[in-house]
Structures are given as structure tokens and as C-alpha cells.
Write a protein that binds this DNA or RNA. Structure first.
Length: 505
RNA sequence: GAGACGGUAGCUCAGUCGGUAGAGCAAGUGCCUUUUAAGCACUGGGUCGCGGGUUCGAUUCCCGCCCGUCUCACCA
């Protein structure tokens, strides 16, 4: 509230007294409308076709810097498209407008009218004869200065940047750019899939059973129905209901919620895209994945390559396809394949092999967990260039269809880029009896102490009894894809408002 | 959940081997009508994250807590 912040710091009081001074002159500090005819970039482009366009323009934006000189001065204004220099003085402006000009603060949002010109030093500028305050800044912007491409005292406090993203966006151009790229990635993915005949659908975010993935859910409650609900951890089982109903190509690109730890690669709410295609299998999904991601990079980054940190990654298809057990052999020298001849591969022998490679095996209970620990510890981080890891163990994949030639493996793949799992895909299990057995196995594992399993969904068994066509399904973690394409070190850098603990500012 | 590190002016940071703090930018005043990290002069601005303890005295040392970053665990 203006006027009541007696104990506020000086700088805020100074802004308030300017606000009051403007009001005393009956200048509307928050007018309803200002008609701007040009964006900043449109005005700058006028200078490309003519050295001195001398065009009358109006524009609007936030004051980002000011260089007053007596009764004249320069300010820079910034709109979404860019920044431009503005010049004015007491003879160009009428009394009220000059008062606004003389009182102007960095952070104010103003509308301007004037004529384009070039300064002595050759900078494209606007000579302003009409200045309108559009929104008075009462809280100073954490502005930084720049010379020769070097930023000084950049607004860098990570916590403040996340909590007050509006300041971050206003002041740090590369942050704005990251979110522009994110938006372009998401739009392009939608365009790409729609062009291929997929329908975007919206399935429930609130589930009575949190299934479709193995993760702890957030719990909520519907009052009127007096019913506990879970925020979805995956849309998978609902999308398969649509395939069962006769949709043949669907996708959903929206939020999932998992009540798990927060890390550089995990936010409790994150964006997942899931795609299902009837009469397709995991091979088709591999083709789709590499085409989709490479095409997105071409459109958004204008390149087949991306640079993440020090690493150059080529997204050009085709990506190599390496079976899970093959890549483990290749990277560690450990050959677990002979075990696949037995229905009950030896846990003890696998443990010895893992230990020989320096992989810790405590808290592991099955052969499959041991192999997975080897994969996680010794293989994943080395998968820098895009690769499809295929043919995972059935025991770890309760929604995927077995391989015809070996019942212990399933038709599943995970695309890896930069050592990160960026997706997960199967030939979907559509045999209701097999599916029921897999759910029961998961429940058994839960009893035996495995913290997170895929929950039984009885209704989904009934769905499969109606008959779901053979189907390929694919999930891609959009946030991680955006991290790669924007060279962002943390998932928080690609989520506008990442979850932080509550704190008074 | 564990460990390491951090929180000092609006922003970026320095500092106090314990005697209640500084710089640059930002801000205010004055001068300055083509500057651009504008310039020159002067000035104001801080419960040193919060709460305890030790001490004559704590922003500094100790303990607890809050918030954040990173690493690990978890997230198959």
C-alpha cells in the first residue's frame, strides 16, 4: 500500500515520494491503455533499410537504464522483443511529460512517442516528444550493467531468482531465452505429432489409484465425494484405455506429480509426454523418438547438434540400439547373458560379479536388482551420445510385453542422452492374464520390502479383457529435453516456478 | 534423510584473529542538452538469516533452527 510503509528502507520511500509527486500533478501513474504501434525490434529493423528513417513511432517498455544530462537525457526501454535507446529533453516534451521524464526510475514502464534518429555515435534511437507513465516502479529492479558483452553485478542469487522469477526474467535475458526455447520445443512437439495424425488428449490428474509408474504419490481429498485421491504419477493406464476405446494415435503432454526427492534432475511436478500408437511396437517408437527429437532440435536450435556444458551431442538419426545386457558387457566386461537361460538366475553369483566390478550390493534382493545396480553405477553415465538401450528384464518392466524369443526380457527401451534417461517405451502388454500376474508380482515385491512398485489396478485388467490392440507406447521427460536444448545445469532452470519451501520474502 | 558450503545495504561482494561494518553499482541532492558500465561533487542507506549460549561486549566463537546451493541417498 502506498504511503503506509513508514519503516521501509530509504530506497522504497524515495520511490513512494516520486509516486506521490506524480499524483499531486494529477498524472495517472497506472493508466488503462496505451496504444503502441511498434515493438522495439520492429523499430530497430527500420534502421536496416534506411540509414536515417525519420519515422514517427510509438512504443512501450520498461526503463532499464538512464543517462541524464542536465535538462536532457537518454534512457533505454525494453519490451519483450528487445531494447532501444530513447532521447528527450525539456524542449521536446511538454511540462507534465518532462516532469515524468525528470522523475523517471529504472523499472518504470513507459509509453513513448517520437521520431527515429541516429545519435552522433551511431546508435539507433528515438527522439521522444511524448512520454506516458504506464506503471510506476516502486520496488527497484536488481539491474546490472553491461559493457563489451561483460555483465557487471548480475542478479545471481539462485534462491531469489527462483522465488521472484519475474525479476529474473526482467533482468536476465538468457533466462527469458531459455523459456522461449522451452515454449518452442513444446509447440513443435505438438505440431510434429498432430501432423502425424496423433490426437492430443487430457486424462485425469486426480486418480483413485496411483499407478502406471513406481513412485510415491501426493495425496488429496474430495470433500463432497468424501474420497481420497492421488495426483497422477503417470497417465499411462488412462491413455491405454483410449487405445482400447478405438483411438489409434494419442498423446498427452502435461504434468506428472511424484512425491520424491528434489534434485538437479527432479522436481516434484514435472512435464511428461506420453504417446500411444495402436498397431505399432517399440521399434516404431524408437524411430519416432529419434525423428521427433532430431526434428525438434533442427527447428528450435537450427542444428542437428547441441552443446551441453563441454559436450557436443549429435542428435542425427539413426541412433544406435544396444540391448541392455550387451551394453553392460561392453562397458563393464561383465557378461550376465548366460544367466538368461535359467528361469531363476543366481542372485549370489551375480552379486559376486557386481562386487568384482566395485558395485555395492547391500540392500539388493534379486538377481535383477544386482544387474540394474551395475547398469546404474557403471553404464548410464557413459551414455553421452544418443543411444537406445533395449530389451530390459521383464522383472523390472511390469507393463511391457515379453520378447517372443526370451520370456525373461521385454520389448522395452530407454533413450539415453548425456548420461540421462530421457524416456521410456515399450511394446505395451495387452494380455490381461499376463498383466494381472505382473501386478501380483509387484505386490509380492512390495511385501518383500521394495519401497516402490507399480500399484495393482484391477479395473485396468478389465480394460485389457475388452481387448487392446497391439500398441507401442513412449514417454519422454520434457524438462530434461529442455535442459539439454538450453544447456541448463538444473531442472529448476527450465521450470518457471520450481518448488521451494515456503518463505517470507 | 546425510554431508559440505552459503545467507552482511535494493543488487554483486569484501570484512571484523570478539569492541555493533565497507566498496562498486543502484538511490538522493547539485552541476551537466548526443550519452551509453555517461561524468564530477556531496549525501543517505544495514536487527550482518532467526533464536539461544559463552563474554564486560557477539555480525564474528559455540549450540539449535530456518532458507538455499552442491554431492550422496531416494526418484526402477
Amino acid at each position: 500500500m502506498p504511503g503506509d510503509s513508514v519503516s521501509e528502507s530509504d530506497i522504497l520511500n524515495q520511490r513512494l515520494s516520486k509516486y506521490n509527486a506524480l499524483k499531486e500533478r494529477e498524472i495517472n501513474v497506472y493508466p488503462n491503455r496505451f496504444i503502441r504501434e511498434f515493438t522495439v525490434t520492429e523499430i530497430l529493423s527500420l534502421f536496416e533499410s534506411s540509414e536515417d528513417p525519420q519515422k514517427k513511432v510509438t512504443a512501450a517498455g520498461r526503463v532499464m537504464s538512464k543517462r541524464p544530462m542536465g535538462k536532457a537525457g537518454f534512457i533505454n526501454i525494453q519490451d519483450f522483443s528487445g531494447q532501444i535507446q530513447v532521447y528527450s529533453n525539456n524542449t521536446l516534451l511538454n511540462d507534465d511529460d518532462y516532469f515524468v521524464f525528470s522523475q523517471i526510475d529504472i523499472g518504470d514502464i513507459v509509453g513513448i512517442g517520437g521520431e527515429t534518429f541516429k545519435t552522433k555515435t551511431g546508435e539507433s534511437s528515438i527522439r521522444v516528444d511524448k512520454l506516458t507513465m504506464l506503471s510506476k516502479n516502486l520496488f527497484p529492479l536488481p539491474i546490472s550493467k553491461e559493457k563489451d558483452g561483460i555483465r557487471f553485478d548480475e542478479f545471481a542469487d539462485v534462491e531469489q531468482r527462483y522465488r521472484r522469477r519475474y525479476l529474473d526474467l526482467a533482468v536476465n535475458p538468457e533466462v527469458k531465452n531459455t523459456f522461449i526455447i522451452r515454449s518452442k520445443i513444446v509447440s513443435h512437439i505438438r505440431n510434429f505429432l498432430v501432423a502425424k495424425g496423433f490426437f492430443e488428449v487430457e486424462t485425469p490428474m486426480m486418480h483413485s489409484i496411483a499407478s502406471g509408474a513406481a513412485a510415491r504419490p501426493f495425496k488429496t481429498h474430495h470433500n463432497t465425494l468424501d474420497m481420497d485421491l492421488f495426483l497422477r504419477i503417470a497417465p499411462e493406464l488412462h491413455l491405454k484405455r483410449l487405445i482400447t476405446g478405438g483411438f489409434e494415435k494419442v498423446f498427452e503432454l502435461n504434468r506428472n506429480f511424484r512425491n520424491e526427492g528434489i534434485s538437479i534432475k527432479h522436481n516434484p511436478e514435472f512435464t511428461m509426454m506420453e504417446i500411444y500408437q495402436a498397431y505399432a511396437d517399440y521399434e516404431d517408437m524408437m524411430n519416432l523418438t529419434e525423428e521427433l527429437i532430431a526434428d525438434t532440435a533442427r527447428v528450435v536450435l537450427n542444428s542437428d547438434q547441441l552443446i551441453y556444458g563441454e559436450t557436443t551431442i549429435s542428435l542425427k538419426p539413426p541412433w544406435p540400439r544396444k540391448p541392455y545386457f550387451e551394453i553392460i558387457l561392453e562397458k563393464t566386461g561383465l557378461d550376465f547373458k548366460p544367466f538368461l537361460k535359467s528361469e531363476h538366475p543366481s542372485f549370489e553369483e551375480a552379486k559376486k560379479m557386481a562386487q568384482s566390478a566395485g558395485v555395492g550390493t547391500k540392500d539388493l534382493h534379486t538377481f535383477w536388482e544386482v544387474v540394474d545396480a551395475v547398469f546404474s553405477d557403471k553404464v548410464e553415465a557413459s551414455l553421452i551420445q544418443p543411444v537406445f538401450i533395449t530389451d530390459f528384464p521383464r522383472a523390472m518392466s511390469p507393463l511391457a510385453k515379453s520378447k517372443p524369443e526370451n520370456n525373461l526380457l521385454v520389448e522395452r527401451f530407454e533413450p539415453y542422452i548425456n548420461g540421462w534417461e530421457i524416456g521410456n517405451a515399450f511394446t505395451e502388454l495387452n494380455d490381461p492374464f499376463d498383466q494381472k500376474e505382473r501386478f501380483l508380482q509387484q505386490m509380492q515385491m512390495k511385501k518383500e520390502g521394495q519401497a516402490e512398485v507399480i500399484e495393482m489396478d484391477e479395473d485396468f485388467i478389465d480394460v485389457l479383457k475388452v481387448g487392446m490392440p497391439p500398441t507401442g507406447g513412449l514417454g519422454i521427460g520434457i524438462d530434461r529435453l529442455v535442459m539439454l536444448m538450453t544447456n541448463s545445469p538444473s531442472i529448476k532452470d527450465v521450470i518457471l516456478f520450481p518448488l521451494l519451501k515456503k518463505k517470507e520474502l
